[in-house]
C-alpha cells in the first residue's frame, strides 16, 4: 500500500492535489508539474476526462506521476466506463503500481464539449465502489476468482453544498459501507457547511477537504454559472474584484481556508484542485504551513 493510505490510517494529516492530464500527447508539462509538487504533497489525483472533455487517460497520467515519484490516485468516472471497463482499469492500476483509486459518478457529457456522446452510467458510484471491494476480496463481477486479488485504496467524493444535505450524508455512509476509505469533498468555500455535513455522517472515514484557488472574479463567476455543485460566495467574488492582484488574492483566500480547515478535528487532509493552475499549489501549502 502507498503513502496516502499509510498516513491516513495512522491519522497523520495529508495533502493531495489534482493534476489535470494533458490535452494531447505532450507529457512534458505533466512531468514538470509533478516534479514541482513532489515535495509538497502526499499524492496526486489525475482526473478521468473531467467535464466530458477529452484528455489523456487517468491511468496513463498516473503512470507518469509514479515515474517521477509522485504517488498517484487514479480516477474512474462512471460516465465513461461500464462495469467491465472499471474492473479492467483496476487490474491495470495494480499492474502500474497505482495504489489509490477515486471513484466518482462523473460529470454528465452534456456539460462538456462532446454533448453528442453516449454517457455510460452502467453502475453508479456506490455500486462501483462495491464492485472494487468485491475484486479486492478476490472476485470479479461475474463471480470469477481473481487470483491473486488486486489491492487498491479506494476513495469517493461528497459535496457539502448538496441539498438536501441529509441525503448527501446518507450517501457518504453508503460509500463507506461499500468500501470507501477516504472521502474527498467538492470545493469548500464555506467551512460551516462542511462541518454540517461532517456532523451528519455517523460513520468514521478520512475526510479530505477540497480547496480551489481562484484566479479572478471572472473565473469565479464562470464556475458559478457552468460548474454544478460549486458555489463561490459573493464576499469572495468581491474580494477578488477589489484586489490589485486577483491571483495572489485567490491564493491568499485558499490559504485562509486551509488554516481554518486544518484545525477541524475530523478533517484528515486537504485536497487542492486547480483549473490547470497547479503552480499555485506549493504557494498554498507553504502559506498555510501544511508542510
Amino acid at each position: 500500500m502507498g503513502r496516502l493510505s499509510e498516513k491516513l490510517e495512522n491519522n497523520e494529516f495529508v495533502v493531495t492535489a489534482e493534476i489535470t492530464p494533458p490535452k494531447g500527447i505532450d507529457i512534458g508539462r505533466t512531468r514538470n508539474v509533478a516534479m514541482q509538487l513532489k515535495e509538497y504533497i502526499d499524492a496526486a489525483n489525475a482526473t478521468d476526462n473531467q467535464r466530458g472533455i477529452v484528455r489523456m487517460s487517468s491511468m496513463a497520467t498516473c503512470h507518469i506521476l509514479a515515474e517521477v515519484g509522485v504517488e498517484p490516485i487514479m480516477q474512474i468516472a462512471c460516465t465513461h466506463r461500464n462495469r467491465i471497463a472499471i474492473q479492467s482499469c483496476v487490474l491495470g492500476a495494480h499492474a502500474l503500481n497505482i495504489p489509490n483509486l477515486l471513484i466518482v459518478t462523473g460529470d454528465h457529457v452534456l456539460l462538456g464539449d462532446n454533448p453528442e456522446a453516449k454517457a455510460v452510467y452502467d453502475v453508479d458510484s456506490i455500486q462501483a465502489i462495491q464492485l472494487v471491494k468485491h475484486m479486492c476480496d478476490g472476485y470479479d463481477s461475474a463471480g470469477n476468482e481473481l487470483h491473486p486479488p488486486p489491492r487498491i485504496y479506494v476513495g469517493a467524493t461528497a459535496n457539502p453544498l448538496a441539498d438536501p444535505l441529509e441525503l448527501q450524508a446518507l450517501r457518504v455512509e453508503k460509500k463507506v459501507e461499500a468500501g470507501a476509505k477516504f472521502i474527498q469533498t467538492q470545493v469548500v468555500f464555506d467551512v460551516s457547511q462542511l462541518i454540517e455535513l461532517l456532523d451528519l455522517v455517523e460513520v468514521p472515514v478520512h475526510w479530505l477537504a477540497g480547496i480551489m484557488p481562484l484566479r479572478s472574479a471572472k473565473s469565479a463567476r464562470f464556475i458559478n454559472k457552468r460548474i454544478p455543485g460549486i458555489e463561490v460566495p459573493d464576499h469572495i467574488i468581491t474580494r477578488l474584484e477589489g484586489a490589485k492582484k486577483p491571483a495572489e488574492e485567490g491564493v491568499q483566500i485558499a490559504i485562509e481556508l486551509c488554516q481554518e480547515l486544518k484545525n477541524i478535528k475530523k478533517i484528515s487532509g486537504i485536497h487542492i484542485m486547480t483549473i490547470a493552475w497547479e503552480e499555485s499549489v506549493p504557494l498554498i501549502i507553504q502559506g498555510a504551513n501544511l508542510r
Binding site: H108, D124, S125, A162, D163, R226, P228, G229
Partner: peptide
C-alpha cells in the same frame, strides 16, 4: 446519470446539476 443511490453531488437546492 442513472444514479440509483442518489442524489449525486450535483444536486443543489433540489435541482439537477445538468441544468447548467
Amino acid at each position: 446519470k442513472n444514479v440509483l443511490n442518489g442524489p449525486c453531488g450535483d444536486c443543489v437546492d433540489g435541482k439537477c446539476g445538468i441544468s447548467s
